[in-house]
């Protein structure tokens, strides 16, 4: 009975809301995915936070602060969406700190130059947008609604990144080389953001059946490549893939094989920054203990006054 009702909602392209009955596996899948998404926004503040104090101008610094602030906000919208499924935020934070829940592996790469602020906005946020535009059509209402707001804000993120790349590419030879180096380092990890091939992806089929995910990993990756190649051309930069070529027959770009050994190594914790990211997150949480304590005391005083 319940299951038939749930099924009917999905079939009618209606949203499932938090008060509706839902299969336990659907709920668990969403908790896992939304928590990972939230954790990614929060950990994703670190690679860019690394450059705030070294931004090349006051304008770029203000922009970068605004972007990192947005990411904190995105994390909070997403934790709230996860909480509608009956988990609490501290629980999720603990799962992140203990490594029992993951975040996107892209944030386990270091940001070595200012150009990385450009490449991250352009490529990493570009890939995130490709994924998140799809998630606006997710069957779970609170998650889909969070995506609407996030996508709007991500557009600023991507455009400011591309503008940094454009500025560097119109600058000195050294600046253009810096942009190229950054593209060389971020291109493949950005393609990995879409996850394993459809044939290898254990979650895709069920998620698509539940309409949590609407487009497969490989299709999203192809969309991203098709969109990004002309943008790289305009910058006069070379995408680091000798196999990249327009395929007239398919109407898409062909691209070379992804190094899945690297992908799995980073997922399993062996990327260049995995340990630092979590250590930094834990330290920030521990260092903030006195703030949480003070807030609790202060509100207790306000209530009793």
């Amino acid at each position: 009975m319940n299951d038939a009702k749930f099924r009917a909602l999905l079939d009618a392209e209606e949203k499932v809301e938090s008060t509706d009955w839902m299969p336990e596996e659907y709920r668990q899948t969403l908790i896992r995915q939304i928590a990972q998404h939230a954790h990614s926004e929060i950990i994703g503040m670190q690679p860019e936070g690394n450059w705030i104090s070294r931004a090349p101008s006051l304008r770029r610094k203000a922009i970068l602060i605004a972007k990192v602030q947005d990411e904190a906000g995105h994390g909070l919208y997403l934790y709230s969406a996860a909480e509608t499924l009956g988990v609490n935020r501290d629980q999720l934070m603990e799962l992140l700190h203990s490594g029992k829940q993951k975040y996107s592996s892209i944030f386990n790469y270091p940001t070595l130059s200012w150009a990385d602020m450009g490449a991250i906005g352009w490529l990493v946020d570009g890939a995130a947008i490709t994924n998140q535009v799809m998630l606006k059509r997710c069957s779970y209402g609170p998650y889909a609604r969070a995506m609407v707001k996030i996508c709007l804000e991500e557009s600023f993120h991507q455009r400011q990144g591309y503008e940094i790349m454009l500025t560097l590419c119109n600058g000195s030879a050294e600046q253009k080389a810096m942009a190229q180096d950054s593209l060389d380092r971020w291109w493949w990890p950005s393609l990995m953001m879409f996850g394993p091939h459809d044939s290898e992806s254990t979650h895709t089929e069920q998620s698509m059946e539940w309409k949590i995910k609407r487009v497969s990993n490989d299709e999203l990756r192809q969309q991203f490549v098709d969109m990004t190649v002309p943008q790289a051309d305009y910058l006069g930069l070379q995408i680091p893939d000798p196999d990249l070529a327009w395929n007239e027959e398919r109407g898409h770009y062909d691209f070379g094989p992804i190094d899945w050994d690297e992908f799995w190594a980073v997922v399993k914790g062996h990327g260049p920054m995995n340990r630092d990211r979590i250590e930094h997150k834990r330290k920030a949480w521990d260092d903030g203990a006195w703030v949480r304590q003070a807030a609790a005391v202060s509100s207790a005083v306000a209530v009793s006054a």
């Binding site: 600023f156 455009r159 400011q160 591309y162 503008e163 454009l166 943008q231 305009y234």
Partner: peptide, 16 residues
């Protein structure tokens, strides 16, 4: 600068 429209993106590179 918090708004996407603040950034001049050439038409040639498509929607962003």
């Amino acid at each position: 600068y918090r708004h996407a429209t603040h950034y001049d993106i050439p038409d040639e590179v498509g929607q962003m």
